[in-house]
């Protein structure tokens, strides 16, 4: 039983990363109509940003949780202003190629300087140690990652579904031309949306640094699974990406316990099944 709970926890943690990343992808896809293949590289940049802050400036985990998403978000907004914006109206393929190219370049640069091995990033003192829950031992940092990711996901959902700003965003996703004709600066909104999606990826990167170490290819490995998650959940819904992200993490964890041989492939098997039955994804709408 202990092993089952442990795998469930691992599943929830992976699910947290899936949810944060697929949420950002969904928000970006809605506004920019771009499948952001650079997402994994930006996640990695978030982790490296925390690493640099600590080792070059002595700035610790808590400030990094805020600074890294802002820094990487600004980097993303520069990418959007200088490159992505010119792709609006073109086929998805162009956005895919460009963002994939950006990912390769960013990862290549980091690999050039840091190789492929992981750099350590310590768990902050406040979150060290563990708690005995009776039925299992819970490392506090891992519990924190799950809870904090969930809060960030729900806050993002609230922002988009329940606020004035979110209403502007949803409207611009539906009909950007008309929203602009009402006097709203839609191009600026698109840039900020890309920054938000990228910031969420960077935040996931910081959260993951103490668990998975900091590696140039940390995002490349993860993003493949995240894209499968996105295909399963569909791009259409914010809550859909959150629920699908966490659920698939848990399903993966359960598979690791009950049938470990399939744990690396279960998400992809599900993806194929969903594609066969409902090509727009479980919560998606037709493109």
């Amino acid at each position: 039983m202990q092993a089952l709970y442990a795998q469930l926890l691992v599943g929830l943690i992976n699910g947290s990363f899936y949810a944060l990343l697929s949420l950002g992808l969904a928000v970006i896809f809605g506004m920019l109509n771009i499948i952001n293949f650079a997402h994994g590289a930006l996640y990695m940049m978030g982790a490296f940003c925390a690493y640099f802050l600590l080792n070059l400036a002595g700035i610790g985990y808590w400030p990094a949780l805020i600074i890294a998403p802002i820094v990487v978000g600004i980097f993303g907004m520069i990418l959007e202003r200088t490159m992505l914006q010119w792709l609006s109206g073109l086929d998805h393929l162009y956005g895919l190629l460009l963002t994939f190219g950006i990912a390769l370049i960013v990862q290549g640069v980091f690999q050039n300087y840091f190789g492929s091995s992981g750099l350590p990033y310590a768990i902050p003192d406040e979150l060290k140690g563990g708690m005995n829950l009776g039925f299992m031992f819970l490392p506090i940092y891992r519990g924190w990652v799950v809870v904090f990711s969930l809060i960030v996901c729900l806050a993002t959902w609230y922002l988009i579904e329940k606020t004035r700003l979110g209403a502007n965003l949803r409207a611009a996703t539906e009909n950007p031309t008309l929203v602009r004709a009402f006097g709203i600066n839609v191009p600026r909104m698109i840039t900020l949306t890309y920054g938000l999606g990228v910031g969420l990826a960077a935040l996931a990167g910081v959260l993951s640094a103490p668990i998975n170490q900091v590696r140039p290819l940390m995002g490349a490995d993860l993003i493949i699974v995240v894209f499968a998650v996105v295909v399963i959940g569909g791009m259409g819904s914010i809550m859909g990406s959150i629920i699908t992200g966490f659920s698939l993490g848990v399903i993966e964890g359960l598979t690791k316990y009950f049938y470990p041989e399939a744990s690396n492939t279960v998400v992809f098997v599900l993806m194929v099944l969903v594609l066969l039955v409902k090509p727009t994804g479980l919560t998606g709408r037709a493109a």
Binding site: R164, A167, N168, A171, G183
Partner: peptide, 9 residues
């Protein structure tokens, strides 16, 4: 939300 969407100019 539809009603409040266009900003006051």
């Amino acid at each position: 939300e539809n009603l409040l969407l266009p900003p006051i100019v």
